[in-house]
Design a protein around this nucleic acid. Structure first.
Length: 413
DNA sequence: TGTCCACTGGAACGTACGGCTT
DNA sequence: AAGCCGTACGTTCCAGTGGACA
C-alpha cells in the first residue's frame, strides 16, 4: 500500500514537473548536429580531400590527429555521410564504413566488421584472420564500389597488436580490380608515427589533418548551440554554461566532457525540480559523473581484481608494496575459497587498477631493500565499503582482519 | 665502487571455450 | 569427427634495474 503511494508521487511529480529538457538526445556524444562550430576549416579540408570519389577516383588516404573530444569523429562522420548522399545524387558508387578500433578490439574483428559492411557475415570466431581478410577482399571487389574505411582510435589497436593488419589494408588496392579503397585513420595519440612501420605510415598519411583542442570560449559556443536544441528556453544560466566550458577546457578542451557535464547538470536540476540549471548543479554533476564512473568500474571488476583491491583496502597503509599486497591477497583468497593467482599476475592486475584510477601504483626503488611498486587507494574507503558491502559474497571479508605479521623492513640500526 | 634486494615487465607458452571447415 | 582458429585469462621463466648500503 505504502509503496504504491510513494510510487504514485514519484510518477506524478515527474509528469507535472517543469521540463528542463526539450530533447536530451542532442547532448549525447554520438549525436551529430547539423552544424559543428569551430570546425569549418577541418570540414572543408576533409571535404576537399574526399571529393575525388564523386568522379570515380580513389581519394588519398588521410590521417587525422587530435585529442579526445576535439570533434574528429563527428567531423569525419559528418563529412562522409554528406559525401554518401552527394554520391547518390551523382550516381557514384561510394560507401564508407566506420570502425572504432578500440571497441572492436582485434584485427580479426576489424576485418569482420569490414566484411559485414560489404554484406557478408563472419562468425565471431572459427576462421583465421587471413581467411576473413580474403573473404572481405573478394566480396568488396565484386561489389564495384569506392570504399572508404574509417579506423577510429586506430592507435589503440596498433599499440596492442602491431601494425601488420594496417600494412595489409594499405596494400589492398593492388589486388582489387573493380573496387577501390581509401583509408581514413583517426588517432588520439600524436606520437603514433613511432609505432608504425615507415612504409605503412607513408602510405597512410598521404594527407594529414590535425584537430586542435577547443578553448573555453569555443566550448562555450558549442554548448550554447546544443543547449538551444536540448533545453527549454531560459533554463540554462549563463554562469552554468561558463563553468561547464571552463571545466572542460581545463581538461584539454574535451567537448565530450563538456556535453556530459551539461547533460548531467540538467538531470540534477530536473530531479531537484529546479527552474533552471545553475553553477551549483554543474558542480554536483561533476561529482555525480565521477561517482558513477567509479561505482561502475568497481562493479565490473573480475573476482580477483576485487580481491586485489580489497587487499589494498585491508592493508590500509598510505602506500603498500606488491609483496605486502600479495600476502594479504593470499589470505583473502583462502578466506574466500578462491584459488590464488601468481604474483606476476597480481602485478598486472594492479597495473590495470592503476590505469582505471582506482589505485595509484608507482615503481620505486628502495635501494638495498629492492625495487617494487608503491600502491595506494585512489578512491575513498567508504565507497569501497558501500559497493562491496552490498555484495553478499564479500560480506565476511569486508571486516576481515589480516593476520600476516608485518614484515617491518624499515627496522634497522 | 660494487653488491644485491624485491621486485618489474617482456615473452613464450598453456588451457578452456565456442566455433569454424572439410 | 578431426583439426584448426581466435579470445580470454592465466602461468612460468628470466633478464633487467634504481639506489641504499657496505
Amino acid at each position: 500500500m505504502g509503496n504504491i503511494n510513494v510510487l504514485d508521487d514519484v510518477f506524478d511529480s515527474f509528469v507535472n514537473r517543469i521540463n528542463i529538457f526539450k530533447d536530451r538526445e542532442v547532448l549525447r556524444h554520438d549525436y551529430i548536429p547539423d552544424r559543428l562550430p569551430h570546425r569549418e576549416d577541418q570540414i572543408r579540408l576533409l571535404g576537399e580531400r574526399v571529393a575525388p570519389v564523386l568522379k570515380d577516383a580513389r581519394c588519398s588516404n588521410i590521417f587525422i590527429y587530435g585529442k579526445t573530444g576535439t570533434g574528429k569523429t563527428a567531423v569525419t562522420k559528418y563529412v562522409l555521410s554528406h559525401l554518401e548522399a552527394k554520391a547518390k545524387q551523382y550516381g557514384a558508387q561510394v560507401k564508407f564504413c566506420y570502425i572504432n578500433c578500440r571497441m572492436t578490439g582485434s584485427e580479426y574483428r576489424v576485418f569482420a566488421s569490414l566484411s559485414q559492411s560489404v554484406g557478408i557475415s563472419i562468425p565471431f570466431t572459427g576462421l583465421s584472420v587471413e581467411e576473413v581478410f580474403t573473404r572481405f577482399r573478394v566480396s568488396l571487389d565484386t561489389s564495384r564500389i569506392l570504399f572508404i574505411i574509417v579506423l577510429d582510435e586506430v592507435d589503440a589497436l596498433i599499440k596492442e597488436k602491431g601494425d601488420a593488419f594496417m600494412y595489409e589494408l594499405t596494400r589492398i588496392n593492388e589486388t582489387l580490380t573493380k573496387s577501390k579503397v581509401s583509408i581514413i585513420g583517426i588517432s588520439n595519440d600524436l606520437r603514433l608515427k613511432e609505432f608504425l612501420d615507415p612504409r605503412v605510415f607513408s602510405s597512410l598519411s598521404e594527407e594529414e589533418l590535425v584537430f586542435r583542442p577547443y578553448d573555453a570560449s569555443e566550448l562555450r559556443n558549442i554548448l550554447l548551440e546544443r543547449s538551444k536544441l536540448s533545453f527549454q528556453e531560459d533554463v540554462l544560466t549563463d554562469s552554468a554554461l561558463s563553468i561547464c566550458s571552463a571545466l572542460a577546457a581545463a581538461e584539454h578542451g574535451d567537448a565530450r566532457r563538456a556535453l556530459d557535464l551539461l547533460r548531467v547538470a540538467g538531470e540534477v536540476a530536473e530531479r531537484q525540480e529546479a527552474k533552471c540549471i545553475t553553477e551549483d548543479h554543474v558542480h554536483q554533476a561533476e561529482k555525480h559523473i565521477e561517482h558513477n564512473r567509479v561505482v561502475e568500474a568497481l562493479n565490473n571488476l573480475t573476482l580477483h581484481s576485487k580481491l586485489v583491491l580489497l587487499s589494498v583496502y585491508h592493508l590500509n597503509k598510505s602506500s603498500a608494496t606488491t609483496g605486502e599486497i600479495y600476502d594479504i591477497y593470499n589470505e583473502l583468497c583462502g578466506e574466500f575459497g578462491a584459488g590464488l593467482l601468481s604474483q606476476r599476475r597480481l602485478g598486472s592486475l594492479v597495473n590495470e587498477l592503476d590505469s582505471m584510477g582506482l589505485v595509484n601504483a608507482k615503481v620505486v626503488s628502495m635501494g638495498r631493500y629492492g625495487r617494487t611498486k608503491k600502491i595506494r587507494l585512489e578512491i575513498s574507503r567508504s565507497l569501497i565499503r558501500d559497493v562491496f558491502g552490498a555484495d553478499i559474497r564479500f560480506n565476511h571479508i569486508m571486516d576481515y582482519k589480516p593476520h600476516t605479521p608485518q614484515k617491518n623492513i624499515l627496522v634497522r640500526r
